[in-house]
């Protein structure tokens, strides 16, 4: 992608960085700068609003539960497309921001083949080729891109059915539903992975940093690029330090 995009991103990151702050402790690495964090939570806010207002109209079971959140059925219907436009707008910026770290590589295809091991927590450390984002994260990212396109193409005729004709709207909403379901599953998995499933990850999206231990555990190749040090060596050094300390009978606190 052209340098214009890069210049735009660099400019935005610099402007946001000048207004925000990220404190990186000695045993930590900067993972998400202010710009990425603000974009992420703007996307998330609009996404959740669009999801809830959309699910309200999705099925009669949820209609009565969810429409009061937005001030009733008519207001829910009125707001939903605007929520989604907010989501699409912020996600478009995130797309540019993350285009480079999200691009698919042969290593990601390798990663997908060991998805079963990943889910079963077989290995303590991720394979050495896992970079800034792993293939699962990239998959989620590109599923959002694809779904957003489908949302948009099917959503506009649903917004203005008279301009597009009866059949377009009647068929379009099925694709709209399918995209929403893909997003819903992705969203549930994403929240789990971003919070409970990997301690320390949530902090990367709130205050921007992760512990070095987190980095060499989950994204060794990124650790290598970010620090210039071998993740495996540093991990083994940490193990030795820990063994030494517990031999001394000290507290088993975590070194950096």
């Amino acid at each position: 992608m052209s340098t214009a995009v890069e210049r735009f991103d660099d400019g935005a990151r610099a402007r946001f960085g000048a207004h925000g702050r990220t404190f990186v402790r000695e045993n930590e690495l900067l993972r998400h700068p202010v710009y990425s964090r603000v974009l992420h939570w703007s996307v998330a806010a609009f996404f959740i609003l669009a999801l809830l207002s959309g699910l309200a109209i999705y099925t009669p079971w949820l209609y009565r539960v969810l429409t009061p959140l937005f001030g009733g059925g008519p207001m829910t219907r009125l707001l939903h497309p605007w929520f989604s436009l907010g989501f699409v707008a912020f996600f478009a910026l995130q797309l540019l921001n993350w285009l480079q770290p999200m691009s698919w590589t042969p290593d990601d295809t390798r990663w997908m083949r060991r998805l079963k091991e990943y889910v079963a927590n077989t290995d303590k450390l991720e394979p050495e080729y896992v970079d800034f984002f792993n293939a699962g994260q990239k998959l989620y990212f590109w599923a959002i891109v694809g779904s957003s396109v489908i949302f948009f193409i099917s959503g506009v005729p649903m917004w203005f059915p008279r301009a597009f004709g009866r059949t377009t709207a009647a068929i379009g909403y099925v694709f709209h539903d399918l995209a929403a379901l893909v997003m819903l599953v992705g969203f549930i998995v994403h929240i789990y992975e971003g919070t409970a499933a990997q301690p320390g990850t949530f902090h990367s999206m709130t205050r921007g940093t992760v512990e070095k231990r987190w980095a060499w555990t989950h994204h060794p190749a990124w650790y290598l690029h970010a620090t210039g040090r071998q993740p495996q060596d540093d991990y083994e050094a940490a193990v030795r330090r820990q063994a030494g300390r517990s031999a001394e009978g000290g507290t088993p606190s975590m070194p950096g």
């Binding site: 889910v119 079963a120 927590n121 303590k124 450390l125 549930i188 998995v189 789990y192 409970a196 499933a197 990997q198 301690p199 320390g200 512990e211 231990r213 987190w214 060499w216 555990t217 989950h218 991990y235 940490a238 193990v239 820990q242 063994a243 517990s246 088993p252 975590m254």
Partner: peptide
């Protein structure tokens, strides 16, 4: 599924963990 994954498999902790 996610909930019971956590209950049964547990999280991926940053390594090394306390012995």
């Amino acid at each position: 599924v996610a909930f019971f994954h956590y209950i049964s498999q547990g999280p991926k902790e940053p390594q090394p963990q306390p012995p």
